[in-house]
Write a protein that binds this DNA or RNA. Structure first.
Lengths: 214, 214
DNA sequence: ATTAATTTTGCATGTTCTGCATTTTTTCAT
DNA sequence: ATGAAAAAATGCAGAACATGCAAAATTAAT
């Protein structure tokens, strides 16, 4: 257990590499022949491991397409709680998510490919949502904590709404970004949150990126 | 196809009854022993049909827990397009959804039971979302059409955001309602949309209160 | 009652996913 | 380095999900 932070053992590194390889193979195969026609056997063969090993890394086949960072949720929660008091709950959540989503810009090719796959297979997009939704409850609690509400299993409507709406905004931003391939992600992201903060008025504000029209 | 509204043939009625029976059996069994431990065989046996018949009614086993009304989406879309021009897009969507959700109040026992099952099984909640999300794209197009945007596959960010956010509000309202068992659903629903229209400000209006507008 | 249409069902088959025992690889202490 | 311990990969068996096809049963229409 003497793993030093930042210096991972060979074993752990190999594990992560295998997991990443399986996820990437899954996404690429799905992009090529459609997610429905990608069997666990094919993914495993692509990486060079046994089908049984696949299930050592992913509970469900579809999880390989989604790529969940289980640490992201925790980071977002603590960032929300620790955010400056002057920020509104929505702003605090927005900034916490923005910090996390820097990764999207960096590895944007992989993300775009994944987004493309998810678009064509609704049930996968849905599963991706599920991953985020496990966080949603915790995020709602973080918002409640930030507001001084007592920590309990019964969170108020408002924290729930902020958490869920923010997650939805992220999803919509990613979907829209992956559809309109010429725009950068961050402006879209901020535009979405600006419109939310404005109460989704009839005339969308010209914030950041102008409302893309045709 | 010559079915008159309200006067359905015996055949159609039997089909609907079977489908409803399967869905109800699925939910009840899930509430009793946990959704994971409910096999298709068990559901079918409960209703008295063969397992093969189950799959004539539901593509996937989990669909039996969700209860999708495939007509609802269409009704909501046309209601959004036909809504008075003075209403903002969010208001139009809100009212269209409200009309549809009257059913929740009526059969509230079944809905509460279902919500309970979904809460305990995240992947089912996620699938339920998926059902709504199939509608979401169409709803976004309806909003775009309402705004005069040309109908195409590339809908702007704003219509997407309105559609997705509204759907999220519905989900959160149902979740919160099923958690706080003493409140009526409609006030929660309207409170959620009021907070959305206000831009999710730092100080939430008294949650659970009466609908602010209308 | 006969005929046609629809639904239900059984059977075969492929895929997903799990449990368990075995083999292989990595790690650690000597 | 070498051998023991820990962890991961694998093979195999089996349950459950899901689909296609054809036969049997039920319903509708003449």
């Amino acid at each position: 257990m003497g793993e030093r932070t930042g210096a991972l053992g060979l074993r752990e590194r190999k594990k992560r590499a295998t997991r990443a390889a399986l996820a990437e193979a899954a996404v690429r195969l799905a992009a090529a022949r459609g997610a429905e026609n990608v069997t666990v056997e094919a993914i495993s063969a692509e990486v060079g491991v046994s089908p049984r090993t696949f299930f050592n890394y992913f509970e469900h086949r579809d999880d390989a397409f989604v790529m969940i960072d289980s640490d992201a949720g925790r980071r977002v929660r603590s960032a929300v709680v620790a955010a400056p008091a002057r920020l509104s709950p929505l702003e605090a959540v927005r900034d916490a998510l923005a910090a996390e989503l820097a990764d999207v810009e960096d590895r944007h090719e992989l993300w775009r490919l994944r987004a493309e796959v998810l678009q064509q297979a609704p049930h996968l997009l849905v599963r991706s949502l599920g991953a985020h939704m496990a966080d949603e409850r915790g995020l709602a609690e973080a918002v409640a904590q930030r507001l001084g509400e007592p920590a309990g299993d019964s969170v108020g409507l408002y924290p729930r709404l902020v958490a869920a709406t923010a997650g939805t905004a992220v999803r919509v931003a990613i979907e829209h970004w992956s559809a309109a391939s010429s725009e950068a992600f961050l402006p879209i992201f901020h535009s979405a949150f600006a419109q939310l903060a404005a109460g989704l008025p009839a005339s969308p504000p010209t914030t950041g990126a102008r409302p893309a029209d045709h």
